[in-house]
Amino acid sequence: MPEENPLVEMEREIVGGDFQRAGDVSSELKNILQQAGFPAPFNRRVVIASYEAEMNVVIHAYRGIFRVQIYSDRVHIEVDDEGPGIPDLELAFQEGYSTAPPHIREMGFGAGYGLSNMKKCSDRLHIDTRVEEGTRVIMDFFLPSFMKG
């Protein structure tokens, strides 16, 4: 079966360390989802996971590309960064575990809930990471059939 074409595609750059604009990509995505008419609880899930993925790039990486494809019944997000990678993925998924430095934590970031929020909010989460190269996060969100149409 041929792949259905996405209704909307978006690709944005994320700059590591740019806390000023951090969250803007997820905010833009939220507006698109609302305009596309998806139900609020679904949008909320996508936006939480998207924000965490975006913040991970801002907090930990040098730069990243955020790509999203919105279909009639699902949302696909890929975030690719150049950065330090994640040495121990299992540890990184533990709530409260974080490698963020103290000045980042003081701002209320880096509390160690990013990956677990992403896991809880997405229907499928895949992470490829190479130490000292970068990390790719792939997330899928499926609209439950009772919410469609």
């Binding site: 806390f19 969250g23 803007d24 609020a40 936006v47 939480i48 701002m107 209320g108 509390a111």
Partner: peptide, 29 residues
């Protein structure tokens, strides 16, 4: 911020000591 985005609700008031611009980003989301 991760706890706020996961647990705060729409149309609510947020009480915090944080005051940097990303607080507004989270509030918007």
């Amino acid at each position: 911020l991760s706890d706020c985005i996961a647990h705060a609700e729409e149309n609510s008031v947020w009480v915090t000591v944080q005051s940097h611009p990303n607080v507004v980003a989270v509030a918007t989301l």
